[in-house]
Design a protein around this nucleic acid. Sequence first.
DNA 1: TTCTAGTCTGAATAGTTGTTCAGTTCTTCA
DNA 2: TGAAGAACTGAACAACTATTCAGACTAGAA
Lengths: 224, 224
Amino acid sequence: MVYRRTHQVVKRLAARRSAILAAARDAASDGGMAAVQIAPVAVRANVAAGTVYRYFPSKADLISELIAEVSRDELAAIRRAADAAPGPSSALAAAVTTVAVHVVSHRKLAWGILAEPVDVDVNATRLASRREIAGEIEARIVAAVRAGHLPAQDTALAATALLGALHESLVGPLAPDNLDDPAKLRDVVQTATLLALRAVGVMDARARGLVVQAALPAKMLAGA
Amino acid sequence: MVYRRTHQVVKRLAARRSAILAAARDAASDGGMAAVQIAPVAVRANVAAGTVYRYFPSKADLISELIAEVSRDELAAIRRAADAAPGPSSALAAAVTTVAVHVVSHRKLAWGILAEPVDVDVNATRLASRREIAGEIEARIVAAVRAGHLPAQDTALAATALLGALHESLVGPLAPDNLDDPAKLRDVVQTATLLALRAVGVMDARARGLVVQAALPAKMLAGA
DNA sequence: TTCTAGTCTGAATAGTTGTTCAGTTCTTCA
DNA sequence: TGAAGAACTGAACAACTATTCAGACTAGAA
């Protein structure tokens, strides 16, 4: 044997794979999933189109991995925020605020990950990712119900509806568009979070308090 | 002049146009917007592919008209239900229930109309239709706020979030799937409606009452 | 019946984009 | 340095579909 993968090569290959994924993510951030086409992604990653196929068997695999990666990040952020909260209601509010901040910060990407259909079959991956995030929200709702802060309810449906309300009001086509202004952005995030919390049965007055508390990280992220 | 359009011909042309639109609607109901392709639609309508282009300048126009037509029907149904209600809160509940019943009854079609991107540019039409429906819901929210039944709020965002919650929980990928059972279907519609009403600030207890009242037409439609 | 203009047909065309692969370049190691 | 294997390139290919258009067909008027 006259050729073996050295550590250096392994690192380069890994870096290239990451570069391709990052290029896909950039493309999706700019123009949604429709912009994740092999040729443009290859250009962004500084490789030839054929090279993409040395790292991903097909476009579907590339997009699946992109969705999984973004969702993994999202889930981790939600858990981090919720776990840092003092009680179940605050945890739910923190989780919801985190989702809200994330989706408004990367609207095109969020739209692509969440809803925008693609010509290839990535539904399984997308569904799994979505289920994980909904599951995390549902767990927080369950905790709040157990603590007696929320009425008993169909928590799965509630989690789904809650996410739907956030997504639609923040990244959907009817979402407000002048979100460059940080103050306006914070308002919109707070309002959407308030709506989401009320949907699952948080009392209006209490919800307002939770939102104000939870919005702190939102402000921080928005400023970053 | 040796040829003029007789009444008979005019009627035949109109009928054919309707047939093409109906075929498109059927295709969308079966397989979403992706299934609305010229050749299959032409087959369904019993015409040749080329004939479609004698009635619609392009696929985008066909789909735009399909969206407009479906939305028109939807809007009319919402208005009818809301106007028949005794007060602003009931009207809102009736409007929301109507939307819920419609989307669960035609999930693929609703998904196609609402969210599924198509390769052609129909965003303007889709946006306009969506705005109309959101506007109608918003008007009902405004009325309920004026009557003192709901807290003051950003009604535009509230209407959008409300629709998002409904759509996501009823036609989204995480929506429950065993909706063939009418009882289950009614439950889901009621639960989603309850969530939507609570989101805009209807008190839990009151919301439950409104939902039960408004669910009557839902049951009727589901049975039909 | 026959002429004419409108209507319909469906095979051919054209544009788009994922995928392949023969040839080239790079990396390792004797 | 050179041989061998791995990685990369990018033009060519393939599949899918919206759109066109020359010819066939139909309906109306004389």
